[in-house]
Amino acid sequence: MSTIPASAFLSLALILFCIGLYGALTKRNTVIVLISIELMLNAVNINLVTFSKYGIKPSITGQIFALFAITVAAAEAAVGLAILIALYRNRRTINIDEMDSMKN
């Protein structure tokens, strides 16, 4: 049994998610944007692990989910950074507001 309510963990996850979201939508440096997205994924992971313990039916499945999420996040980070490197090689910039080739 734990003395900490589930809502405390969920609130922490919420705060971290919001920080990540804000960072992902405002930062100019693409690396920081990617990192912010990692932070958001972490917040999700906290939620998953929390519910694995405090859910209606506690189960190890939540932790398994978190592991999968971490794996996918790692893969995403690797591919994302590879794309970033390729872009940088072509455009000589990693500023996200200069990546507007979708417009033309």
């Binding site: 992902a24 939508l25 944007v33 996200i96 507001d97 990546m99 507007d100 080739s101 979708m102 417009k103 033309n104």
Partner: peptide, 8 residues
């Protein structure tokens, strides 16, 4: 603008 961030 063509910027994904703005769309997001």
């Amino acid at each position: 603008t063509g910027q994904v961030q703005t769309y997001g």
